[in-house]
Design a protein around this nucleic acid. Structure first.
Length: 352
DNA sequence: AACAGTCTCAACCGCCTCGAG
DNA sequence: TCTCGAGGCGGTTGAGACTGT
């Protein structure tokens, strides 16, 4: 079966859109809404294919699209999510309000990738270029772990600095968690009801991180409880090959958790004739109506440091994980969504 | 001023997914 | 169950802008 080629037709225009074309498209969509892209060109009086119209709208004309410089927070989230999901631009875009996948992709290819390389970090593996086989964090680094504690790590860099330290010099040991993510620490914030479950687990993990003096401590503390909550863990995911499938779509920032509340704010923000403040987004993410002291930076931190290697992590991988900071944090994250209330209590008793 | 090289990013291409019939 | 096509996605291209000589 051969598929019809898209956008093949007599007299169809290609290339850059003119202002007139934009006006026609905007006007039509305002009147009739999105969808039915195949018919839009004819109805809107455009000599373009439907696909081209859709792309023009979603990547450029859509009113809520934010354009211009990426903030340091956005850059960090892109890097983190890229480390976790690879070139899944649409997935990454879902976690960056008002940014399009195309824009993120371009920004990655033209800026972030280059910058990571300059810092000696492989933009594909997100590990130091010099030693891809073994991450540099192989021994105890209490200072890094303690940086997980917001109370002791608010001095990494100021937001006004011209260049965020998204990547580290090799000498400091590549630690994507503590170094890339922590700048968004703002002291104690709390979380919305809708994300309480996630945050409570993250909070627990934060406590682990703060208490532990070594990665090994964290691992041993968390694996103690593994059996207790592994009932809820899909059996097939213990098989390495199957787990890679099961976790292939693992999403560190489930939409249902992140945006249930925020979207309301975002919508109202759009009505305002002002730029969208991403830090506000991040802060609302961590706000808690119960006013529990969730350490904001920690939640972001723990929820973000995920990589696709998660699929290869099992309970038996402790030794490797000890030598792999990403590994253990992934491990924690991997179980994050599986901890039920009982297990949470158990876990908390075990390690706090 | 003119040219060449480099960079940026909007737009395109072709494959994939998924729902409708 | 199969076919079809709209919409979605990631990779790539190339025109225009920018920079250096």
């Amino acid at each position: 079966m051969s598929r019809k080629r898209c956008c093949v037709g007599e007299g169809l225009k290609k290339g850059a859109w003119t202002i007139e074309e934009d006006k026609k498209l905007i006007s039509y969509i305002h009147e009739h809404g999105e969808g039915g892209w195949r018919d839009i060109p004819q109805k809107a009086g455009l000599k373009r294919c439907g696909k081209s119209c859709r792309l023009r709208w979603t990547n450029y004309l859509k009113p809520e699209i934010k354009r211009g410089e990426f903030s340091s927070e956005e850059e960090q989230i892109i890097i983190m999510l890229h480390a976790a999901r690879g070139n899944k631009w649409s997935v990454i875009a879902r976690h960056l309000p008002r940014r399009t996948d195309n824009e993120i992709k371009n920004y990655w290819n033209t800026h972030l990738k280059k910058r990571l390389i300059e810092e000696g970090i492989d933009p594909v593996t997100h590990k130091p270029l010099a030693s891809n086989t073994n991450p540099t964090v192989t021994t105890t680094q209490p200072e890094n772990l303690h940086s997980l504690d917001a109370s002791s790590s608010d001095k990494r860099y100021s937001r006004s600095s011209s260049m965020p330290p998204m990547s580290l010099p090799l000498s400091s040991g590549f630690n994507p968690v503590s170094e890339i993510i922590t700048p968004v620490q703002r002291g104690s914030l709390s979380c919305k009801k809708s994300i309480k479950k996630s945050n409570s687990t993250s909070r627990l993990l934060n406590k682990v991180a703060a208490k532990a003096t070594t990665i090994k401590d964290i691992l041993s503390a968390t694996t103690i409880s593994y059996e207790s909550f592994s009932n809820g863990f899909p059996e097939q995911t213990r098989n390495e090959e199957d787990s890679s499938n099961a976790l292939a779509d693992f999403d560190p920032f489930p939409q249902s958790l992140l945006y249930t509340e925020h979207e309301v704010h975002a919508t109202s923000d759009l009505d305002m004739d002002q730029g969208y403040d991403f830090s506000y987004f991040l802060e609302t993410l961590g706000r808690d109506e119960h006013n529990t002291n969730v350490e904001y930076g920690h939640d972001i931190l723990l929820m973000s440091d995920v990589s696709q290697e998660v699929s290869s992590i099992s309970v038996d991988d402790q030794e490797n994980m000890i030598g792999n900071f990403e590994g253990w944090s992934n491990y924690l994250l991997d179980h994050d969504g599986l901890i039920n209330d009982t297990d949470y209590d158990f876990l908390e008793k075990q390690i706090i």
